[in-house]
Simulated scan of single mutants.
Amino acid sequence: MWPDRRLIDLFKTEFPIVLAPMAGIMDADLVIAAAQGGALGSLPCAMISAEKAREQVNVIRQRVSAPVNLNFFCHKPVEADPAREAGWKSRLSSYYRDLGLDPAAPVAAANRAPFDEAMCALVEELKPEVVSFHFGLPEPRLLKRVKAAGCIVMSSATIVREAIWLEENGADVIIAQGAEAGGHRGMFLTDNIAEQPGTFALVPQVADAVKVPVIAAGGIADGRGIAAAFALGAAGVQIGSAYLRCPESKVIAPARAALAQARDDSTVITNVMTGRPARGVANRVMREVGPISPDAPAFPHSATALGPLKTAAEKLGKVDFTNLWAGQAVRLGREMPASELTRALAGAALARLSQMAG
């Protein structure tokens, strides 16, 4: 069976598969379906209020008796820079004109809040089995409260130094996020995306450097990838892109079409969409303004000026300004219910592992 059972025993899940938290395009429905398939479902909480998170967890708890992972960002907030934002809006002004929008109209600020007192109190109230963080760990007093609530703590590392820091600072599980992964880089001790290793290089080095279980993330979307992760020393995998086209995801129709047509070379790392490097399928604004632009305001303020463009273009059925976060294995994604996909992934991985063992 599974060559390393540490995560199955720790999470009490059927399979050592974690559904990646994908903020903005999923909610309780995908968490429930993945959990019904035997994975650890993750609810992204970085873009929702504490009230919304409570409501979502209640829905999950009513529908399935399985462990749940609540995911939070813990970046250091950067104040908005009016001059930089004005320059950014000016850089995007031709798009505003094309869509008949007024660049001077007030815009709602992008919401991506770091883990705070309110969310910590919510964790203490809801007691999720697992809490995961992106961009390091929260301040020690908040982390202490999360652990006192009985939650298993996970966070992402993009280099070995980050993995060692996470273990030393209280993480129970480390997600080794390779350069292939979709979405935001979890980096917090470096900002050099050019140096980020791929999953195949990162996982064995992280597994050698820490004692806690390691989850491989990035470019894993089928049984072969899962089996390879175990061969490299991982105790489990985190998978996101493979689930994007499941019926339970909230990906809008034009974005689904773009993801379905994506190839191995369709994704790029960009800072244009939010101000922080993230991998996604290239869209018009990523190609024309980036993919990396020195003009993009700091995270998450870059997303503010794109908000009205995203809304207007989506009404026309276009994803020119929509985050299409996805990893390099996006082409391996399938259109099938998430519970079935989870079982198919686990079954294919176990068959491959037994071949390797035999």
Rank of each mutant, 00 (worst) to 15 (best):
P204I: 14
R224W: 07
A262Y: 00
F188P: 01
A231I: 09
R263M: 09
A255P: 07
D222T: 05
Q238F: 03
I269N: 00
I175S: 12
E195C: 07
S241I: 01
K250H: 13
P213K: 15
Y243T: 02
A231C: 15
S249F: 01
Q205H: 12
I193G: 09
G236A: 13
I175E: 13
G219N: 06
A181W: 06
A217Y: 04
L189H: 07
I193F: 11
N169D: 02
R245D: 06
D191Y: 08
R256L: 15
A255W: 07
M273H: 12
A201E: 05
T274R: 09
V210L: 15
T274M: 05
R224V: 04
P197C: 11
K250M: 12
A179S: 14
G183T: 12
A282N: 04
R276S: 03
P277A: 15
E195I: 14
V237S: 03
I226E: 02
A228M: 11
D222R: 01
A217T: 10
G240D: 03
G182W: 01
A234T: 03
G240C: 04
D264H: 08
A194Q: 08
Q205P: 01
T199Q: 02
A227D: 09
A262C: 08
G275W: 11
A260P: 01
H184S: 02
Q196T: 15
F230H: 02
G219P: 03
G233R: 10
G280F: 15
P213A: 14
P277G: 13
S249N: 04
L259K: 03
K250Q: 15
V272I: 14
M273W: 05
